[in-house]
């Protein structure tokens, strides 16, 4: 066992791992950026078009909410497969990191949309009403009340999103996307290279924990600054 652990730190292993780390970092950063944008947008749209929202459009809200739920209810694997035609449409191919990013975002946008919606739902009705009573427009309310008030929760959920994305890249790895997940499956599982599997898992473990820690610290810092904890 210690043997195996030691082998996981040899140069040969890390020559394989390090490029994979960069692939994972690249895919995570790009897909997180895209998902964050659309997740915020869709989350806010879901929230304000609700029957009791700032700008109720109940029918649209029902339909949109159902679509989000439908994607959420499917296993990630199925969504990735279903998203391949979309990837083909946008980047022209159905394999490799770019196509993978599209699939990843399709899986994660619905998740993040709901997380955003729930974060903002926690902002008290009274604050939103106070803004309304001062003549604030819906745009004012979204950008000056909802988002800043929900910021600490949003940051925590953003970390959840990033971690989810990292873990799903592993699944997407099976479609030739590359990255740590791909390495773990390809070498570790198919070729019984436990050393490489261990190294990949270690890197994933450490980075996910660091992210979690960083997110929690940042959220805490904001809450501290506002004297809410």
């Amino acid at each position: 066992m210690t043997d195996l652990l030691l082998k996981a730190f040899t140069k040969e292993v890390w020559d394989i791992i390090i490029p994979a780390i960069w692939e994972t970092v690249y895919m995570t950063i790009v897909s997180t950026t895209i998902t964050t944008f659309f997740g915020l947008l869709f989350g806010i749209v879901l929230l304000i078009t609700d029957k009791h929202g700032l700008h109720p459009i109940p029918l649209f809200n029902k339909v949109f909410g159902s679509i989000i739920n439908a994607v959420l209810s499917l296993p990630s694997m199925v969504v990735i497969i279903l998203a391949l035609p979309i990837a083909k449409l946008i980047v022209g191919i159905t394999y490799g990191p770019k196509a993978c990013i599209i699939s990843l975002t399709v899986v994660c946008i619905p998740i993040f949309s709901r997380l955003v919606e729930n974060s903002i739902l926690e902002v008290s009705k009274g604050k939103i009403e106070a803004a309304k009573a001062m003549g604030a427009s819906n745009i004012d309310i979204i950008f000056k009340v909802m988002l800043p008030e929900a910021l600490p929760t949003l940051i925590r959920n953003f970390v959840v999103l990033t971690i989810t994305l990292i873990s799903i890249t592993a699944i997407a790895g099976s479609f030739g996307a590359g990255g740590l997940g791909d390495i773990a499956v390809r070498y570790g599982y198919h070729r019984f290279r436990s050393d490489i599997l261990i190294a990949a898992v270690l890197v994933l473990l450490v980075s996910v924990n660091l992210l979690q820690l960083f997110g929690a610290l940042l959220a805490r810092k904001i809450l501290k600054k506002r004297h809410l904890i």
Partner: peptide, 22 residues
């Protein structure tokens, strides 16, 4: 018009409703 109207009506709430982010 409603927005302009509301800008000229101040309201003080029993539960303050101040923004914690500001």
């Amino acid at each position: 018009e409603l927005s302009l109207y509301r800008q000229k009506i101040g309201i003080i709430f029993q539960h303050f409703n101040l923004l914690d982010s500001r």
